[in-house]
Amino acid sequence: MVRESRHLLMTVAPGASWIVFFLVLPSAYLMSVAFMSSGTYGLPEMPLSLESFRRLAGFGFLGWSPGNLYTLLRSLWQTLVATGLVVAIAYPIAYHISTCRARWRPIMLLAVVVPSWTNQVIRTFGWMNLLAPGTPLSSVAEALGLVAPNMGLYPSNFAVTLGLVYNFLPFMVLPLYAAFEKLDTAQVEAAQDLYASPLRAFRHAVFPQTLPGLLAGIVLVAIPAFGMYVIPELLGGGKGMMLGNLVANQFAGSANWPLGAAGAILMLIATFIGLFAMRRIGKRLGGGEEVVI
């Protein structure tokens, strides 16, 4: 018995202590900071207060302002749009790769993944150069009347969306490819044989089989996109700020740790709500089957 419990301790201890020191304790600290007051340099101080939540909700010295609410809504909207676009682009790519000759598949997957081997910040700087005023892309957009003259495509919300889509595409392609690769084509043929048109065969025989991969991809894309800091910081300008930037700023520039902590908690809650909703949707679409996210 003693030996067994010692073995248990030895195997569990590393993981458990990792979780305690790098998840539980920091989260507890963050929680407590959120309920403290902001001191001289923005550092947390006693007494306990709900001031940071009040400010997060938009109530400041000059009455209520919608700035933070807009930031939250912008974050949600950007996440939604970027994830939707990523799905729309990645789905055909993943399908196409899975139907390629076997020896081409690793090469094509590599082509999807290789860009992400470069640091995200550097790639984002690349987009700044591509989208800045006076560049060919911006000139085309100006000529088409999509942007005001000499404004360029960056900084803008559009640039942020583009950056997010570009950055997260591989994270959707890979799980979807995995789902497509083990697609049971007999099911698709059975659906056709049972009077399903090509479109309905896709809806009833292909889509359900790729659903776990799709949901996994959405989680891999939507959660980091929602908390994204670098891309809106570099491509968004002052009006493209997302929740991640709001939180980061509270720990740096306009230092207010309690407010930043409250923002982080808000993000956490929003993420959990999103995950829960995904589970429900997955369960419904998957015919009551538990979809592991």
Partner: peptide, 30 residues
């Protein structure tokens, strides 16, 4: 899907995300 011909597949090719009842009803639904 326009032929009045149905197949029993070697691998059965049942739809795993549907119940037996929904599997049986699939062709009729389509």
């Amino acid at each position: 899907h326009r032929r009045s011909v149905n197949t029993v597949f070697q691998s059965y090719a049942l739809f795993p995300h549907l119940s037996v009842r929904d599997n049986l009803a699939f062709g009729l639904k389509m």
